[in-house]
Every structure is written in C-alpha cells, then in structure tokens.
Nucleic acid binder design. Structure first.
Lengths: 115, 115
DNA sequence: CATAAGCGAAACCAAAAGGTTTCTCAATAG
DNA sequence: CTATTGAGAAACCTTTTGGTTTCGCTTATG
C-alpha cells in the first residue's frame, strides 16, 4: 500500500490521449485478432517504421498493447482492458441520450467520481 | 445535398481529440446540468479566461458544447450527443472483456466499420 | 565469420497545442 | 454619455507531437 496504485498504473500517456490519434486507433484495430511485429504493422501505414514504433510505445504506455520478444522480433498484441476506463467515463454521460433506466443504472453501478 | 454532411459535420477537431485533454473533460463535467458563461467556467480552473475560452471553442468544434448569446454574455451548454461516436468506437472492443453474447450483439447492431 | 534483418535510441525538425498578455468591441449600468 | 463588464481576436511564447533520417545493437542465415 505504498502510494496511489489504483488500477491505472499511471504512465506518461493515458488512454484518452492514446486513442486521440487516428493512426493509433488504426493500429489497435489492426491488432484486433492477430499479433504482429513492427515491420508488418508499419507496412500498413504511409510512414516510417520508426514512426509507427513510437506510436506503439505510446499505446504500450497506456497499457493498450503488450510486446513479446520472439528471437529478434517484437510482437505487438492488443490489450483492450484499459479501454474500460473510457467506457466508464462515458457511462456518466450516457444517461443523456438514453432513457431514465440508464440514469438509475448509473447511480447503482458507477457511483465513483471520474474526472 | 451539397457535400459530405453525414452526421459528423467534420471540423478541425474531432471528439477523440476534444476529450483527450483533462481540462476539457472537466469542463464537460462542469456543464453537466447547468449552462454557464465563460467567466464562471474559468473561475473553476487555474488558468486565464482566454485559455478556457479556447478549450470551449475546441469543444464546440467537436459539437460537445453549444453556445447561446444572452445580452453581452455567452452561455455554454453541454451537448453530449457526439459522445456516441466514442461509444460506438468502443463497442467494437467491448467483446474482448465481456462474454460471448456481446460479440454477437456487436455483429447484430453495430456492423459498420468505424476506424 | 560476414552479412542481413528487426528494431529501438538519438538527433533533428516543423507544426500543433496549450498557455499568456494586450487589444478591441459590444452591451449594460450609473 | 461614460464607465465597466463580458468575451473573442491577435500576437506571442514554450512544450509536445508526429514525423524523418542516421546509428548501433542483437539475432538470425548463407
């Protein structure tokens, strides 16, 4: 129980920032069900391997991808769990476009103050 | 029917970018159920009125707030609808932390390719 | 062993982001 | 009519972001 370690593992980049960039969102999508090395990933984008590599690091800092070294290559894999923070943040606002039931639901299940 | 007007009204800033900044998320939260003028809003933040004003413009470009002029003041109001884009984007990934039913649900109700 | 492949680190760069202060201008209050 | 108030526009500054190219290290492969 040292400090604030409450589930988020706060790094330099958070989930909100990580998904703000379109390229990074595409990378996530690409990694949906196959894990792949940087070179392959960058083959899908109109930019250098190094640039993609940087995006991957940001995603990794936000906990959205996990890297595994296999020989000389590094495989990147989707780690979608942190997206739940987003879902939770959203849940606060959902009541505005949904029905009364959702407002109640919000009270019941998400009564912690996010942001 | 002039151009691409497909619900998003694409401006310089999109929703993902708009909510990436913590200050802007707080502003949204603040506007939850009361609309208020810039001076009042900025009173809640450790920065100049002008800075907050800029954040508000970004939020407005993303469609997340609406401004109404009343005499010499401009009232800002939450407009949560665009957050649905976020919810939709998320729905693609939800199947990974939820059960099989959700995967099915995704197929049934959100079968459009987002990002 | 020599060479090639896979990839991050470093140095560098232009543009965008997030602030600030100053100016201007319209609306309201005395 | 003249302050004063509310607030965006402009100009400016610093840091971050998203890229690039070059370099070097590690792990195969002929």
């Amino acid at each position: 129980m040292s400090k604030a370690n409450t589930a988020v593992l706060s790094a330099k980049h958070d989930v909100f920032q990580a998904i703000a960039d379109p390229t990074r969102r595409s990378v996530l999508k690409l990694l949906t069900d196959r894990e792949m090395p940087v070179t392959v990933i960058s083959g899908h984008f109109p930019m250098s391997r190094t640039a993609v590599s940087k995006h991957l690091r940001i995603l990794a800092e936000a906990g959205l991808v996990k890297e595994t070294k296999v020989g000389r290559e590094t495989r990147y894999k989707l780690q979608p769990e942190p997206l739940q923070q987003l879902k939770q943040w959203l849940s606060y606002y959902e009541r505005f476009w949904d029905n009364k039931m959702n407002a109640l639901q919000h009270f019941v299940e998400n009564d912690n103050t996010v942001d």
